[in-house]
Amino acid sequence: MEKIRIPSEARMIVSTSSKGDQSKWFVGNKWIKENTLGYENMAEYVASLILSCSTLPKTSFISYTPCLIEKVDGTVSEGCYSSDFRGMLQEVTLERLFEANFESTDDILNHNGYSTSEKFNAVMEKIHKFTGLDVSQEIAQMLAFDAFILNEDRHTNNILFLFNPETEVWQLAPIFDHGLSLLSDTKDYPLDKPLSILKRQVKGKPFNSSFTKQLDLYKGEPFIDRSMLLEKLDEIPYDVGRAKDVVLSQLRDVRLKKIIIG
Rank of each mutant, 00 (worst) to 15 (best):
L133E: 08
G79T: 08
V135K: 07
V135L: 10
D192K: 12
K33Y: 06
D234L: 11
I261S: 06
R255N: 13
R200Q: 15
L109A: 06
N35P: 09
D134C: 07
L162M: 04
L89F: 02
S23T: 09
M142R: 07
H111E: 15
R11Y: 13
L248E: 15
R86K: 14
S249N: 14
S136D: 13
L51E: 07
E152T: 14
L133Y: 02
I32R: 02
G179H: 08
K257R: 13
K24D: 07
H178C: 02
L191M: 15
L215P: 04
R242Y: 07
S104R: 15
K258D: 02
L150T: 11
H155I: 03
T131S: 00
V247F: 06
L160T: 10
M142Q: 02
I224R: 05
A10H: 11
D107K: 11
I236N: 05
K58M: 06
D234V: 09
A43Q: 03
E103G: 02
I6M: 02
R96Y: 12
D146Y: 08
K126N: 01
I175P: 01
N157C: 13
M42R: 04
L217S: 13
T156D: 10
R11L: 14
R200F: 05
F98E: 05
D177L: 01
E152M: 11
T36F: 07
L150V: 13
P222D: 05
C80Y: 09
M42N: 12
K119F: 10
G38N: 05
P66F: 05
L49A: 05
G20K: 01
F120V: 08
K193M: 15
D192W: 01
N41S: 06
H111R: 15
R252W: 03
E125V: 13
K193G: 04
F98W: 10
V14W: 10
N101E: 12
R226V: 10
N41A: 11
I261W: 09
T105A: 10
A243H: 09
M12I: 13
N158A: 12
A10F: 12
G79P: 07
T59P: 03
Q201F: 02
Q214R: 00
M1V: 03
R86S: 15
W31Y: 12
S210R: 00
S209R: 13
Q137C: 14
E70P: 00
F26G: 06
E168H: 15
M1I: 07
E44A: 08
S227P: 00
S184I: 15
F223M: 11
G132V: 09
V247G: 05
L251H: 11
P206I: 10
F161S: 07
D239P: 07
P57G: 01
L215C: 04
V169Y: 01
Y39E: 04
M88A: 15
D225F: 00
L37E: 12
I149H: 07
F145M: 04
D84E: 09
S196W: 11
K58A: 13
S227F: 06
S15G: 08
E235G: 09
T55S: 14
M124C: 13
Y81I: 11
E235Q: 12
T55W: 05
T36W: 04
L251D: 06
Y39P: 09
L89R: 01
R200Y: 02
S104P: 06
M88P: 11
K258Q: 12
E70L: 11
